[in-house]
Amino acid sequence: MGLTQTLTNNVEEIAQETATMIKNIPLDNEIEYSVLISRLRELVNQLILTLKSGVDEDYIRFFDDLIRQKVNEGYNINDIQRILTVLRDKLIDVIEKEYYEQPDKINEYFKVIVKIIGESRISIGKAYIKVRENTIIQQQQALNELSTPIIPLFDKIVVVPLVGTIDTFRAKQTIERLLNAIVSEHAEIVIIDVTGVPIIDTAVAQNLLNAASAARLLGSTCILVGISPDMAQTIIKLDVNLFSSVITNTNLKKGLETALNIIGLKITPVQKGR
């Protein structure tokens, strides 16, 4: 009788006894006994399949699905690794019991079990990284969409409020969207608000200047507002006279005044009554 046959005959016993053993070790997250048993049953069946056919796509998919589900439920990967350890010990127990008269077989099957558990650990690691990377990518996309709004404030005026650190990737994306907005809104004035930019270095300054120059090429005037005192000092210390070609204003309010002035408009109080 081969190893796979032995395991197949004992799936139920392995699942139940492993579950009982798991109840005795501390886990980070509680898991319900019945759920645990059915999970273990699936896992053992998958391991048996893998023993027959080797590591294939089904096997990888099994762990991908398992980990994605577990991570979404809020479990951490450590519990799964602990459970795998308990399962390994149980499988070895079963083999010892079944083949106690054939030490050479025990030896051989031990190696098989250790190997397949090792493979499973690798797959779990890979699947976990995959899930995490997906999460990071999704968050990054969400962040990018949120962080570079371009607001048409008034006829011919658009505002770009920049928040957070501006790296080259974000700067490029912002410039691209800004230029498209200039064309679609027929904007003559672009107000770039850097109130929300905490730190500035030469790269960020260069990116801001690029945005301003590109906007100018399209025929609009760029007004840079909200440079903090710290930022101003840094720019001077960096010895980059980058903004001499751009109009700068203290804050968005002043920037708007300048913008209206350039396009020849002003805000006046409404006359009350007739």
């Binding site: 410039i175 691209e176 230029l179 399209l218």
Partner: peptide, 15 residues
């Protein structure tokens, strides 16, 4: 000047 062209010009250092 089209947006794409403006970006190219800036990247080439032609302002």
């Amino acid at each position: 000047i089209q947006p794409g062209v403006a970006i190219t010009l800036i990247e080439l250092g032609i302002t």
